[in-house]
């Protein structure tokens, strides 16, 4: 029972971690919370599900297209709701991101209707014994895919010129500009990467829960934000750690305390972190 809850928690936690990476990277570079992160998650899932349902595209193609659609939507969002407002009171871009989030959610509701869509491809899944523990191959695959994306992101940031440029912008935007870095392009790239990861998380969870619907991004978005704060907002390893921890805490909370209040766990953790250690586990840039 405990091990099963742990594995369930890690699976959803991996999705939270992917979204939290988007929050934390955008926060790192702009100092702003992208409130519409949950809608990018929803967008990725819908594009992948619709493409697969059309029968024209294979699974890998649909997965990549979903990520690309989320990434492009993220870049568009930055152009429309963030860039014109750079330089105003921090409250203003926050509010416009909230507006964008409501807009996208209601647009999806109008276009696709409120009901759940099942994932069009049925996978064959079994439970295998791994070191004496029962593990579902579905959960294993989701976890591995998510971890793969995280490793790719970490490597990108650490070893490529563009990755280093993003870090430079996060450290000090003006100095980065003096060094010849095109800051606007780096901001767009950050949105692109962060949104692609959220899109991937959306597709993985659409497979896991076998449900895609317009409001699917609301709670994961909120929880991933809590995860980013828990890990230390602005810190990339912190977002991963925070996401996984939060997923596990939620799963154990639902299993041992009360399943009716499962969605409250993340929020309680958020309040506790803000009270006790606002800089998060791995000290983020926010404080």
């Amino acid at each position: 029972m405990f091990v099963q809850q742990l594995i369930n928690g890690l699976t959803t936690g991996a999705a939270y971690a992917l979204i939290a990476l988007g929050y934390t990277m955008i926060y790192g570079i702009l100092g702003l919370i992208n409130f519409a992160q949950g809608e990018l998650y929803m967008c990725g899932a819908f594009v992948a599900v619709l493409l697969l349902a059309s029968g024209q595209v294979g699974f890998v193609g649909a997965f990549l297209a979903g990520m690309l659609a989320a990434a492009l939507l993220g870049v568009a969002l930055e152009r429309v709701a963030f860039r014109p407002l750079r330089g105003s009171h921090p409250l203003v871009p926050l509010l416009s991101a909230i507006g964008a989030s409501i807009f996208l959610q209601s647009l999806a509701l109008l276009l696709f209707g409120p009901s759940d869509r099942p994932f069009p491809v049925q996978f064959e899944f079994r439970t295998v014994e791994l070191a004496g523990l029962p593990v579902s191959t579905l959960q294993g695959l989701i976890l591995l895919t998510a971890l793969g994306f995280m490793v790719l992101l970490l490597a990108f940031v650490k070893y490529t010129t563009y990755g280093k440029a993003i870090i430079a912008c996060a450290l000090d935007r003006d100095t980065a500009r003096l060094m010849g870095i095109n800051v606007d392009r780096m901001v767009a790239l950050t949105f692109f990467l962060g949104s692609a990861l959220s899109g991937a998380a959306g597709i993985l969870m659409a497979i896991y829960y076998n449900a895609t619907y317009p409001r699917m991004g609301l709670l994961p978005g909120l929880k991933a934000f809590s995860a980013a704060i828990l890990g230390g907002v602005g810190s990339i390893p912190g977002a991963i750690l925070g996401g996984l921890l939060l997923g596990v805490a939620e799963s154990l909370g639902a299993g041992y305390l009360s399943s009716g209040y499962k969605d409250a766990v993340a929020f309680v953790i958020l309040i506790l972190v803000l009270l006790l250690r606002p800089q998060g586990i791995l000290k983020g840039k926010g404080h």
Binding site: F103, S106, L110
Partner: peptide, 18 residues
Amino acid sequence: YQDLAYGALLVTLLIFRP
């Protein structure tokens, strides 16, 4: 279309008439 309109209203107002 109500929520759609509110969302669009928020973004447009904040950009053009904050």
